Amino acid sequence: MRTIQLAVPPVAELPDIGAVLDRWQSDDGPLHLHIGDLGWYSLRGGDATAQALRVWRCGDSIRAIGLLDGQDLLRLSVDPDFSHDDSLARQIESDIDSSNSAVFGTGAAIVEARGATRLCDRLKARGWGADEAWTPLSRDLSLPVEEPGIRVEVAGPDDAEAWTAVHWSAFRGVPYTTDARERFVSRWHAMMSGPFSSRAQCLLGYDSSGVPIAVTTVWSAGPNRPGLLEPLAVHRDHQGHGYGKAIAIAAAKSLQQLGSSSASVCAESSNKGAVAAYSSAGYTPRTQVRDLRRDS
């Protein structure tokens, strides 16, 4: 019987790992780790992305892929054919929750493992508890998608400063200094020239006067598979005017043109405004999910 081994992949393997994640995406399955999550993380560069990955293999076959999104959060996807496999779950459990963990240090930790049924059962039995609730949402793209009602363009290299400025305003809410702008624009270019860039479209939405007010990036997992919105943002000075709904509709239309079967996104359930905006844009909320937490 072959053993399951954990490794940190070299950067050259990133495209192959992304292709495996693509095959694991399904409209009937959970909203788990997606190539878009790796793509957004690749703002940090290919080497850093590879170093943040943990890959479980049995022989030449990949059984699970995890992204360390910070020191204490592992975002994990398991091959759907092995979601109930106890030997795989036991090995991953050992690698993340033993005294000599190959994933986490000591102290608090969070595992996002949607669809990894057996692993979640084992972690709960070891005392891992439920973390905050998240709401997955998806929009079926087999039907026509309406116009968003604002002008939306695919952002190119010359739009990096405008795109990043909107995102910065929405998520940071502090002045976008020259140093911050140079760093973020450089990282944006790294993402859009990186190993997952062929799957991405950055969208930039404008108000009626031509001011950039909303952004998103959509990620394709290939034809007839769910695509992902990651991230989506509305400039802090322009929130509350329906631009979140508009850019979410534009994202669905873009993914439809790329051949995706659905457009997916996940929002914190406590963020009622985000859930409402996606819902108003035709995204259907699915059953809430919770990550698993180990307290310190």
Rank of each mutant, 00 (worst) to 15 (best):
R225M: 09
H241A: 11
G222D: 01
V275C: 14
L258N: 10
V211D: 15
S269I: 08
A276H: 04
S264I: 14
A233V: 08
I213E: 08
N271V: 05
N271C: 05
K245P: 06
Y278V: 14
A250L: 03
S260Y: 13
S269Y: 13
A277Y: 06
V215R: 14
L258H: 12
Q239M: 14
S220C: 08
A274H: 09
G273P: 06
H238F: 14
A277D: 06
I249E: 02
A251F: 01
Q257S: 13
S262D: 14
G242I: 01
A263F: 07
T216F: 07
A251V: 02
A248Q: 03
A214Q: 00
S264Q: 13
P212G: 13
A221G: 10
G244H: 03
G227T: 11
N224H: 06
H238M: 12
V218K: 00
A267R: 10
V215Y: 11
A276N: 11
A251C: 04
A214V: 02
G273I: 09
G273L: 11
I249S: 03
P226G: 12
A274Q: 15
S260N: 07
V215S: 07
S209G: 15
L228D: 06
L228T: 03
A252K: 01
T217R: 05
Y243Q: 00
S254Q: 01
Y278G: 10
T216E: 04
G222N: 00
G244C: 03
V275A: 14
V218Q: 00
V218E: 02
P223C: 08
P226I: 06
G227E: 07
S220E: 06
Y278L: 13
A263C: 11
S269C: 15
E230A: 07
I247W: 00
V218S: 04
G210F: 04
A276D: 07
Y278N: 14
G259A: 03
K245S: 08
S264K: 12
W219Y: 04
A246L: 08
W219P: 04
G242S: 02
Y278H: 09
G242E: 01
L228G: 07
V215P: 12
L228W: 07
A221S: 15
S260I: 11
A252H: 01
A252C: 05
G240V: 02
T216I: 02
S262F: 05
W219S: 04
Q256K: 09
V275L: 12
S270P: 08
G273D: 10
W219R: 05
V211P: 05
E268D: 12
T216Y: 00
G227A: 10
L258T: 06
A250C: 07
H235W: 08
